[in-house]
Write a protein that binds this DNA or RNA. Structure first.
Length: 455
RNA sequence: GUGAUUGUAGCUCAGCUGGUUAGAGCGCUGGUUUGUGGCACCAGAGGUCGCCGGUUCGAACCCGGUCUUUCACCCCA
């Protein structure tokens, strides 16, 4: 028999990990609910036609496809095989695993448009799958925690995303991070302003590498991508700009003075800040990053990305506004905005920073122990009394030496053992020992229950 | 998908230019202790050296393939 193993990029979660993951998820869930979002779930698999074409060519490559049931070869002709994988695929697979939560949500909104009350605020916490090459902080199966609003263009949503991120990060104990924010319209405007209208896509891909490869290399790349020398020179003042938030805004107002779209982007950004101020909130952790570009295939307004400083993990949250996500499913003109927390990466970040609380297992509080058959029977009769009092109680099920039972309690981090021996049976009491302090006393059953209830 | 990298006991790792029965710490099991865990001491179990093939008198070590891990590119949570 060979050793069992897991598919590449997938993991098991043991009790300790689950306690920690649950903690993270609870914080996120509470926050979403606090801001008025309602939970939905969608199936792990979608029709392949729902998924393909939404994430670009590379995204399609990363989709997990599900082989049809039964004789999946029945529609395949030998000519298909000769034509290669792309000809065979649609005939052998009609379903795929979801790649993110946004596209299934868009599908959901379109299918339920008549039942939903708009603006519709939903959150969704489910695993997604990508046939990516695994690395640190990158898995083939991972959870996303999405919150989206559809059916409103109000910038209150943008402001509230910032508040939700700060709420979650604060509760998780994260103190050094930046919420990078930008606006797709600003990027469009920049492309216009330097004389390369419509080319913000390649512009951003190149400029995104500024931190990594430097301005010189970025210029080379831009040149390769067909940007004129004059355009690249026009870009220079922006690259070298060092200013605070207000300074950046002022600079852009003049830099983008001939781009209507660009100015609109700056206005939107200012309005978000304005709304925050009206809410009595500040701009802590907010970093206006003019070069931030992500999800260009569908974002049209605000863009978010959150990075925790001082750790080796990539972004732990991201999102943005999309004006026409449901358009591809036949419902145009519905604006939406959403963002997502990556629980798995948040876990890695908290782990790396040592921010998980020590006692997080929330497990059993009391283990009933005994020496012999008589004590075992006595302990069985007490179980329900403690459990009714709301105390997480268990009994060592196999009749074993008391030493073994104590070791079990220690290993499972059970703080109290209740000893059921002849003396206790005779007097109708129980001896409670605190395994952390070593202190031991005898109590009546009711006293013991009352005592443990309050600890 | 491209180029690297990793794999030895449950865990973290040693293992000399290829040479007898592959080691350590922690963990595990039993005992010192049949009304008491952690600490200490004693004893013990546990490995087809990721897998398949090749070179060699001989392979954990060299070569090829494959899987896995990690990293860069790409992209992303």
């Amino acid at each position: 028999m060979q050793k069992p193993s897991l598919p590449k990029g997938t993991r098991d979660f043991g009790p300790v990990q689950m306690a920690r993951r649950t903690h993270i998820l609870e914080v996120i869930k509470e926050t979403f609910q606090l801001f008025g979002y309602q939970q939905i779930e969608t199936p792990a698999m979608e029709n392949l036609s729902t998924l393909t074409g939404k994430y670009g060519d590379e995204g399609d490559q990363l989709l997990f496809k599900i082989l049809n049931s039964g004789d999946f070869l029945k529609d395949v002709e030998s000519t298909d095989l000769e034509s290669g994988a792309s000809a065979v695929l649609p005939k052998v697979a009609e379903k795929g695993l979801r790649y993110d939560l946004t596209v299934p949500f868009a599908r959901y909104v379109v299918m339920n448009r008549n039942e939903l009350t708009f603006p519709f605020k939903r959150y969704q916490i489910q695993p997604v799958w990508r046939a990516d090459r695994p690395q640190k902080g990158r898995y083939r199966e991972f959870y996303q925690c999405d919150a989206d609003v559809v059916g409103t263009e109000s910038l209150v949503c943008e402001a509230e995303i910032i508040l939700m991120i700060r709420n979650v990060f604060g509760k998780l104990g994260l103190k050094d991070y930046s919420i990078k924010i930008n606006n797709r319209k600003i990027l469009t405007g920049i492309a216009e302003a330097i004389g390369e209208e419509g080319k913000e896509g390649p512009l951003c891909v190149a400029i995104d590498k500024l931190d990594k490869i430097g301005w010189e290399k970025v210029q080379e790349e831009l040149s390769q991508r067909g940007f004129g020398n004059q355009s690249i020179q026009n870009l220079a003042p922006l690259v070298s700009l060092e200013a605070d938030l207000a300074g950046k805004v002022e600079f852009l107002k003049s830099f983008l003075k001939n781009s209507e779209t660009g100015l609109k982007g700056v206005e939107e950004l200012e309005e978000v800040f304005q709304i925050l101020s009206q809410m009595g909130e500040n701009l802590d952790f907010v970093d206006f990053d003019i070069m931030l570009a992500r999800g260009l295939s569908y974002y049209t307004g605000a863009i978010f990305e959150v990075k925790v400083n001082g750790v080796s993990i990539g972004s732990v949250s991201g999102g943005g506004r999309y004006d026409n996500l449901t358009g591809v499913f036949g419902l145009p003109g519905v604006s939406g905005i959403g963002f997502s927390f990556g629980v798995d990466r948040l876990y890695d970040v908290l782990d790396e920073l040592g921010l998980f609380p020590e006692e997080n297992l929330n497990g059993t509080k009391l283990l009933l122990t005994y020496f012999d058959e008589k004590g075992f029977s006595y302990a069985l009769s007490l179980l329900n009394i403690f459990r009714k009092a709301g105390i997480k109680t268990e009994i060592y099920p196999d009749q074993a030496k008391i030493k073994k039972q104590f070791e079990f309690a220690t290993k499972k981090q059970i703080s109290f053992v209740g000893i059921c021996g002849d003396n206790e049976i005779q007097s109708g009491t129980i001896s409670i020992k605190n395994l952390n302090s070593g202190e031991q006393n005898s109590y009546s059953i009711q006293e013991a229950a009352g005592l443990l209830e309050n600890l």
